[in-house]
Computed example of a mutant assay.
Amino acid sequence: MKKNNMIYWTTTSLFSAMMLFSASMYFTSPEVGAGFTKMGFQDAFRIELGIAKMIGALVLLIPFFKGSIKEWAYAGFGITLISASILHASIGDPAANIIAPLIFLGILAVSHIFWKKRLQAAA
């Protein structure tokens, strides 16, 4: 049980920290804004995605949130990361920009697996 908790909190904290950092860059970095423009998105989408990332990261981190809302956060992040990888590939970005979201998808998957294991152990 202790190992499961350690793996869960390590992966969840790492993933959430990355999403919070990413979201903050959506609001503060002109380069990120330019990247969204290059991909054909308006500023409203960048702002919406930044807010959604912040909320999702908090949902994953705060134990108060349980059940369906946490599942939706995991699903939303999964869709976002897969979409980011596909989008970066489609516009010819460097391999690092294509692979990074998939690495974080792997970390998210480990977090989800160990969240489920913790739920099963508590039941």
Rank of each mutant, 00 (worst) to 15 (best):
L14P: 09
V110N: 08
A100E: 14
I107D: 09
K70G: 06
L81K: 04
F64A: 13
T28M: 05
Y26A: 10
H112P: 00
S85G: 13
F64G: 04
W72M: 11
M19F: 11
G33N: 01
E31K: 10
I107E: 08
L60P: 10
G40E: 09
R46V: 01
L108W: 03
A52T: 08
A89R: 08
D43L: 00
S13C: 09
I69F: 14
A73T: 04
G92P: 09
W115Q: 05
G78Q: 01
G76E: 09
K2V: 15
I51G: 07
D43T: 00
P30Q: 08
I113N: 02
R46Q: 00
Y8D: 11
E71C: 01
A73Y: 03
I7S: 11
A44W: 12
F41A: 01
S111R: 05
G78E: 03
V32A: 03
A123K: 13
I113A: 06
L20F: 11
T11N: 12
Y74Q: 06
K3Q: 12
I55C: 05
I91G: 06
A109R: 02
A57K: 13
I47M: 01
H88A: 03
I51E: 06
I47L: 01
K70C: 06
I62T: 15
I79K: 02
A44I: 13
S90K: 11
S13Q: 06
I113K: 10
K70S: 07
L58T: 14
Y74D: 04
V59M: 00
I91S: 08
S111L: 04
A122N: 06
A84F: 05
F36D: 00
K3M: 07
R46P: 01
A57D: 11
E31S: 09
L61T: 10
S13R: 03
G106Q: 10
M1V: 09
M19C: 03
S29Q: 03
W72E: 07
A122E: 15
E48A: 13
P94S: 13
L58Q: 10
S22A: 15
F15S: 04
L49D: 07
I107K: 04
A23D: 07
K117I: 11
D43A: 02
A17V: 14
L102P: 06
I62Q: 12
G67E: 14
T11H: 06
G35L: 00
A121S: 08
K117N: 13
I99V: 15
T28G: 01
S16P: 08
G78S: 03
K66T: 14
G50E: 08
M25S: 09
M54W: 10
G56V: 07
P94R: 03
A34F: 00
I55D: 07
P94D: 14
L60Y: 12
I86C: 07
W72D: 02
Y26L: 03
H88E: 02
A100N: 14
D93M: 02
W72Q: 08
N5K: 14
G67T: 14
E48L: 15
I69W: 14
F65K: 03
I91D: 05
A122S: 12
I69Y: 12
S24M: 15
G106P: 10
E71R: 13
S90E: 10
F77I: 04
L61V: 11
I99G: 05
I86K: 06
L81M: 14
N4Q: 14
I47F: 01
H112T: 02
A95K: 05
S68C: 06
I107F: 05
I103R: 11
A52N: 05
F27W: 09
L49S: 12
Y26P: 00
E31T: 12
I51F: 06
L81R: 08
T28F: 04
A44N: 07
